[in-house]
Design a protein around this nucleic acid. Structure first.
Lengths: 218, 218
DNA sequence: CAACAATATTGATAATCATCATATTTTAAT
DNA sequence: ATTAAAATATGATGATTATCAATATTGTTG
C-alpha cells in the first residue's frame, strides 16, 4: 500500500484536503513488521507518531516479577502512540506496544507533524479524540481491575460480548482479564454449577442472564 | 470572590482577553460548598463544567462490596470534570468527585462553553492538556496498582516524596495506596527491620536509598 | 487414525493481603 | 497533668487468587 492510500484509509485524516495529504506524505513512511515486533518500549522516548494501518497490536507493561500485564488491544485504523504532553517534540511511552499480527504501520515525524498540522489548527479535534479514547481504555481497565473480582470480570465479559468470549482461547481471556487460566477454569465451573451458564463442547451459553448481570452490577 | 477574580486565578483561562473573560463570566457561577459535598456521581451526566478555585477534592469509585476505591486528589486551580468525548453537549462522570475541604467551585455551562470557546479555537490546548493530565493520573494509578505490591507502593511513595509521606496520617497514606492501615504498619516495620528506613517519633528517615529504590525498580 | 503438541482442568499448596478485635501509643482538651 | 479521643500497632484468622505439578482433553499433522 502507498503512503497516500494508507493516509486515506485512516479516519483520523479524513478532514484533510489533497494538498494537505501530500504535505503529510512527505513526512511519513509506511512499513510492514512481523508479529512480535515491539514498536514502543515503556519509559522510552520516540520521535515517530505511529498509526496502525492494518494488523493488530497490544499494549502491556511488565511488573516487578517480570510478569506481563496486559492492558488493551489496539485495532487497525487507530493511533498507536501515547501522548503524554503537548509541549515536547517527542513522545514518551507509558507501555510496551507489540504487534500480535503481521501489521502495516504508518510512521510520521512527530516534530514536523506538530509544526505543520497541530500548530495550524489542523487535526486538533482528532488528536484530542485519540487521547480521550486512550484515557477511556485506561478507565475500562481501572473499572475491571479495581472494582471487580475474578467472577465479576468473567461475568462482565460473557455478558458484554459472548461471541468474543467463545472465539477466544481461554488462555487469551485470562490474559485480558488478568486472572490465571486455572482461576478462569474454576470460575466457569462455578457459574455452571450455579446454573447461570452452560458449557457445551467448550461453548458458553447463558442460562440466567439476570443472575449473570447481578454478579457484576452488585 | 467574584466570578471574574476566580477566572483570573485559574491558569486554564490565562490566555483569554478581558472581553472573553466577560463573555465567560456571563455563563458562569461561583459557589462555596462544605466538606463532603459530592460534585459528581459516577456514571451520571452533568451539563456543568467545574473548576476547583480553592479547596481540595478527591476522585473515587465504589467497588461491589461497597468499599471506597480512592483514585486521586484534585488540587485547586484545576478542572474537576472528566471529559469522555467531544461530541456530546454533556459530561459523563467516570468517578465520584467529593470535596474533602470546604471549597470554592466555578461552574460553567458546558454547552455554551463549547459553542463560544472550544468551537472558536479558544482554550483548545488548555482543554487537551487537562485531558492529558487526567490520563496521566490514571496511568500513575495503573502503575501503582498493577505493577506494585504493597511494599513497593510504600517504598515508591517514601522515595518520591518523603515530606508528603511524613506529613500525611498513616490513615490517609493507606487510603491513597489502597492498602489496609494494618498492612502499612507491617510494611513499615519490615522496612525498618531490614534497616532500609528508620522511624523516629513516627517520622520516617531513609537509611539505605539504593535498597529502597531497588524495591520498586525491580 | 496414531502420535504428538498445545490447551485446559484439577488438586495441593502457598503468598498476599484484608478484616476484625484488642492493645498500645499519640494527640488534644480540659 | 489527667483524661478522653484518635490514631496506630499487633495478633489471629480468613478470603482470594497465584503457582506448580499432574492429568485430561482437544487439535494438528504426517
Amino acid at each position: 500500500m502507498s503512503i497516500k492510500d494508507a493516509l486515506k484509509s485512516i479516519d483520523f485524516f479524513a478532514t484533510l484536503n489533497s494538498a494537505q495529504i501530500d504535505d503529510l506524505t512527505s513526512i511519513s513512511t509506511i512499513n510492514n513488521y512481523n508479529k512480535n515486533y515491539v514498536l514502543y518500549y515503556e519509559k522510552k522516548q520516540s520521535n515517530q507518531l505511529l498509526f496502525l494501518v492494518d494488523g493488530l497490536a497490544k499494549a502491556y507493561k511488565i511488573d516487578k516479577y517480570n510478569n506481563e500485564i496486559f492492558l488493551y488491544y489496539i485495532y487497525k485504523n487507530s493511533l498507536l502512540s501515547e501522548i503524554s504532553n503537548l509541549k515536547n517534540d517527542f513522545l514518551f511511552s507509558f507501555s510496551n506496544i507489540e504487534l500480535i499480527q503481521e501489521s502495516q504501520i504508518l510512521s510520521i515525524d512527530y516534530k514536523q507533524f506538530k509544526e505543520k498540522f497541530l500548530n495550524n489548527n489542523l487535526l486538533n479535534i482528532e488528536f484530542t479524540n485519540e487521547i480521550i479514547s486512550h484515557s477511556q481504555q485506561l478507565q475500562a481497565l481501572v473499572n475491571r481491575e479495581f472494582i471487580f473480582d475474578s467472577i465479576a470480570k468473567v461475568a462482565m465479559m460473557i455478558d458484554s460480548d459472548l461471541d468474543m468470549f467463545n472465539n477466544l482461547q481461554r488462555n487469551n481471556i485470562s490474559l485480558i482479564l488478568h486472572i490465571n487460566p486455572a482461576t478462569l477454569s474454576r470460575v466457569l465451573n462455578r457459574l455452571k454449577r450455579n446454573k447461570i451458564i452452560d458449557i457445551i463442547h467448550g461453548e458458553v451459553q447463558v442460562l440466567d442472564l439476570l443472575a449473570l448481570k447481578a454478579i457484576f452490577e452488585g
